[in-house]
């Protein structure tokens, strides 16, 4: 080893490390800003574990005899989820067609469809719930309307994307037979997007099962109403029973949607 060589090795060049440190610094500053300015009295947090244990103690054991009240509310919850998915499927279809680049009759119509899709997706089902409770009063009708409104944009977006991605050769072939617009759609477009429509519907149903259990918190029907009233009456053992049943129904819904999807696709 006569030739003394001093190779310096660094994982990153100076510029790269500066960039990385810069990003890390920005993230850190954001975090510091957020923790310093958020409206939390931190010493109070020391008591949090105690309070959590306290609540859990009050919830145990779950009141299994409450199941009799839970079941009808749960059936209503599932009905809300299913009906709203069905309505959303029916309503989303024309919107998807109008929203897709290649099937929209006019750019203005497409723009309107797009506004509907974006609005529907960006407003949470709970907010839709607040709005429809104003219209229809508390109850399942407002819940169905809320979940329909929320699901609409989600489904329309996915279906219209699938319409935009269809194989135009097939459409051309049908058009070449001299078929009119509706028939072209029926034979050239619909068969290609059918799997997406079914997949999206099942997926949304799975989501709606979850969400239909909470819209009751703003009065829009289902098990959430029972949950709110149990909480207001401090019936914590009923609350824990409701939570358990929601957990079971959500898992069952996930299982059903997964197995149906496997069968269809």
């Amino acid at each position: 080893m006569t030739a003394v060589q001093k190779h310096i090795w660094k994982r990153f060049s100076r510029k790269e490390s500066l960039e990385r440190y810069g990003i890390e610094l920005v993230v850190l500053l954001f975090f510091l800003w957020a923790t310093r300015s958020v409206d939390i009295y931190w010493p109070f947090i020391a008591d949090a574990p105690h309070q959590a244990v306290d609540l859990v103690k009050r919830m145990l054991p779950p009141n299994f005899s409450f199941t009799g009240d839970i079941i009808p509310a749960m059936i209503e919850t599932i009905n809300i989820a299913t009906l709203s998915t069905l309505f959303a499927l029916i309503l989303s279809f024309p919107i998807a067609v109008l929203n897709a680049r290649n099937t929209t009759p006019h750019p203005t119509v497409q723009a309107i469809a797009r506004v509907i899709v974006v609005t529907s997706r960006s407003v949470n089902e709970l907010v839709w719930g607040l709005i429809f409770v104003v219209f229809f009063g508390p109850g399942a009708v407002a819940g169905i309307a809320a979940l329909t409104m929320r699901s609409l944009g989600f489904m329309a977006k996915l279906v219209s994307e699938s319409i935009e991605e269809i194989d135009h050769g097939q459409v051309e072939a049908i058009r070449a037979t001299g078929a009119n617009g509706a028939k072209v759609f029926l034979f050239g477009v619909l068969p290609q997007i059918m799997p997406t429509i079914m997949g999206t519907t099942i997926f949304r149903w799975d989501i709606n099962i979850r969400q239909s259990s909470v819209i009751g918190l703003v009065g829009a029907g289902g098990i959430g109403i029972l949950l709110t009233s149990s909480m207001n009456l401090f019936r914590w053992q009923n609350v824990s029973m409701i939570l358990i049943s929601i957990f079971v129904v959500v898992l069952a819904g996930e299982y059903v949607s997964a197995s149906v999807r496997k069968k269809l696709i």
Binding site: L126, L217, L227, L243, I246, V250, L251
Partner: peptide, 9 residues
């Protein structure tokens, strides 16, 4: 399994 709103409440 639980929607955020439910956890929140």
């Amino acid at each position: 399994s639980f929607p955020p709103i439910l956890v929140a409440i």
